[in-house]
Design a protein around this nucleic acid. Structure first.
Lengths: 483, 483
DNA sequence: ATGTCGGCGCCCCGCCGACAA
DNA sequence: TTGTCGGCGGGGCGCCGACAT
């Protein structure tokens, strides 16, 4: 597994903080399989509304009516992600990431490609196990019962000539603290157990039944371990530092100030506290905004994390499309999709999601940007500038930074005009020379959705050979069943 | 002891928070003898700069250069303190207060009086003891050694007919949790000890040597206990919720928004984390701004908290008067006094203080507002409006809300004009009928400093008898040795 | 007056297999 | 395969006065 492109800088953020690099694989394992940090150096879309929701979730307190609205702050900001550092709370081991964002007013095709490519380097960790602790595991009466497969896959093999087979395990946590355990294979029937040292770990981390512990092996075969706490009700009710209002205002004001000056700003993303990611890779957002022509009643699938840190998809139906907060955040697309779930046990699943979180189960038509263009014409048409009015409106509605602002007046460049304007500078840049080799090794299917647009406007930028290669790679998963 | 005028509302701030009222005496005891919360309903002066410093101190991180300056936010805001609620962090027992402030543009004489009177109801708690824990106290090897005087003063008397004399003590903490201890008088020589139950308390509160524990008795003779942690280096390095920048911006933006709309806002005051109080009773600020004609080389005294929760004064000399941050906060008076301390062990004492924190040791001349007026004429002169230009400038510099803004232009009402304008409404109010009896019992010397101004402008508001009575009370400490 | 320590009793932590789910 | 429990041995928690400061 790899957290792609994370700039691993031992920051001084909070003196006394980590003086070493947090292991990215361990961080990812603690964060969960669905968390996918954007890569440093790529473009992202930042949603202040989602950031605000994280604050509310962290404070266990909703937003009050006192928060002023920031009319100059758009509901989404196109940013460059300058820097990503991984952190873990020294008290609770809660993982979080510090992201340095800088608003920008435009992106080019290369940025889109880089964003897309950076998303693909994720591959699930296999040298990994995670167990939710039982009452026996956490009681002072005994040790930890290791699931057999986990022990055989992760731990160094035991010497079964010993009676009983046993060894000393040494594992490091997120803070590079060392924990040692006696690993023994005994009992009738035989089982793997962690005994001596385990209770120190439980009390040191203040674990209770329901919390999870996980082990991974790094590239040097060293054992690492982390924890994931059960989602308890009473986490931190308040920081006692800043009022909830001031925190919300701080989020908005910081973003507004950065947007006004195109200056960098910093956000913390807390994967286990936040209901949803609020810094979205540009390509992910772009594809969703571009290809998902959503409508009421549409069926979709969505990934969820299972217990034991697996993933599975649930199916649902779109029951509504409307603003979560039509007053402060009009047309924000932040969790603007109301959904119902197929399985009745879905009571705890969210009833609002954002467009980039779902996969429509209808075939991936390229009905982008509007159904005005026939399906067949969508594959590789050249659209004259004059016919792109609907496209312009679509993008001005969803990506206001492309034009001047979100106002109704039709000033501002159209997406097509803007793209054409970018041609000259892009052509002098060519493609990033590193991009082509990567593209050749690139086998993911998702990129298909941006290609129509891509080739639509930038045919001149890519050799026919490259294009064909990509097409060949992509065809198996991009067959349009209706074509 | 009394925390004056605190509105004791069981707020829902942070659901799951205190469902009961925090005992104000216990809160005060944990906060320390120097902490003096302004009373709800009175006027205060709020210093965003000081608030920002508390954020820095809580985050253990200075302010970055990224914070935008808020040119429309004055360095001090006159506010009404609507509400004060006391809190304690459920994890650490750290005490803090939530203050609801509302900016206002003017105050009248009654507000000044009420502010002053509310400061006087403080009387130090006597049914109180505080001990810094030794290594023996916190080790698992034994119990807690109770200082003899403390045990005799605070704990219920032992039955010395028993051998050994012993009893069960029950004490409640800030969260109303009950702790029971065996109190025994034994050993050779005899001493008071807490044995059974003590180690549970130490581990439950995670106390170490150097932390303090304190006991008080409430009005119903019930035993209460609290803790004060030693000022360790690594407290909470970061909230993992909001970036330091966003927190600072949040503080400033919330204050700016409230000031622009005269709308309420909320701040948290954390007495043990903050280097200085940043919400100052109006009367306290007024007296300091009015009477302390400070100059380089001037000698002063200042209160400090001792170990064991006592107070003592240290003497020092003013070595500079200048802005702490001349760019963002010009003429803010927030810690604008540079000082040196007499005792060489004063290394850890602050080298910058605010005007209301110090007591000049020169006689309290009434050389307010400027030396332009002769000393003798300062006692009870009537100053015609036309001669008050310097006074106006002084107050416009230090209390900009009195005029229109801090700009150099001479628009805006002068203090004198404004005071005169207030006369009609004040006269219809008369004095608060509760104020006069309190004034008669009032023996403190500090109020003298505001009286010249007071009587200067508001002679018509107070009977000669009352004035004389006050004068008699005040004369002993207001003798001008040069007169 | 009170901080620390040696002595030592006993509680409960924690290792074991039995047993069942 | 693994969660829970009775059994039980020993380490350390915690109560005591001695002694020093």
């Amino acid at each position: 597994m790899k957290v792609p492109g994370v700039t691993l800088i031992a920051t001084n953020h909070g003196e006394g903080a980590e003086k070493f690099m947090i292991n990215p694989e361990l961080w990812q394992a603690c964060a969960g399989p669905l968390v996918n940090l954007p890569a440093a150096g790529t473009h992202v879309v930042y949603f202040p509304q989602g950031h605000s929701e994280q604050v509310s979730a962290s404070m266990k307190k909703g937003m009050d009516a006192q928060i002023p609205s920031y009319p100059n702050l758009q509901s989404k900001l196109l940013c460059i992600l300058h820097n990503v550092t991984l952190h873990a709370d020294p008290e609770t081991d809660e993982v979080y990431a510090q992201l340095t964002l800088q608003p920008v007013t435009a992106f080019d095709k290369e940025a889109l490609l880089r964003s897309d490519l950076s998303m693909k380097s994720y591959k699930p960790q296999t040298e990994f196990f995670c167990k939710t602790l039982t009452a026996s595991d956490t009681s002072t009466h005994g040790g930890f019962s290791v699931p057999r497969r986990a022990a055989e896959k992760i731990f160094p093999p035991l010497d079964f000539s010993m009676q009983p087979p046993a060894q000393e395990l040494v594992a490091r946590d997120l803070h590079d603290s060392v924990w040692t355990f006696r690993h023994i294979f005994r009992g009738q029937p035989k089982r793997h157990l962690l005994t001596t040292g385990w209770s120190l770990f439980v009390s040191g981390k203040r674990l209770s039944a329901g919390d999870s512990v996980l082990f991974i092996r790094d590239e040097k075969q060293q054992l690492l371990l982390g924890i994931r706490r059960a989602t308890r009700q009473p986490t931190n009710l308040s920081s006692s530092v800043l009022s909830s209002d001031s925190m919300h205002i701080g989020v908005l004001a910081a973003a507004a100030h950065a947007a006004a000056n195109n200056s960098p700003f910093t956000v913390f993303y807390n994967p286990r506290a936040s209901p949803s990611e609020f810094v979205i890779p540009l390509a992910k957002y772009y594809k969703a905004a571009c290809s998902n022509q959503l409508s009421l009643g549409m069926r979709f699938r969505m990934m969820f994390e299972t217990e034991e840190s697996g993933t599975r998809r649930y199916m649902g139906t779109i029951t509504g499309i409307n603003d979560l907060d039509g007053v402060r955040w009009k047309n924000s697309q932040w969790r603007n999709i109301q959904v119902g779930w197929d399985e009745s046990t879905a009571g705890e699943r969210r009833n609002r999601v954002s467009i980039w979180e779902i996969e429509p189960v209808t075939a991936p038509f390229f009905i982008c940007p509007t159904p005005f263009y026939g399906l067949n014409r969508q594959r590789y048409p050249g659209i004259p500038d004059g016919e792109s009015a609907d496209l312009d409106n679509f993008f001005k509605r969803t990506m206001p930074w492309v034009g001047e602002d979100m106002s109704m007046k039709d000033t501002g460049l159209s997406l097509v005009q803007w793209m054409n304007m970018q041609q000259s500078s892009i052509q002098s840049n060519h493609l990033n020379p590193l991009a082509a080799p990567v593209l050749q090794n690139y086998g993911g299917p998702d990129m298909s959705r941006i290609l129509p647009h891509d080739s639509l406007q930038f045919n001149s930028l890519r050799s026919t050979a490259q294009l064909d290669q990509l097409k060949n790679q992509l065809v198996p998963s991009t067959v349009n069943p209706l074509a």
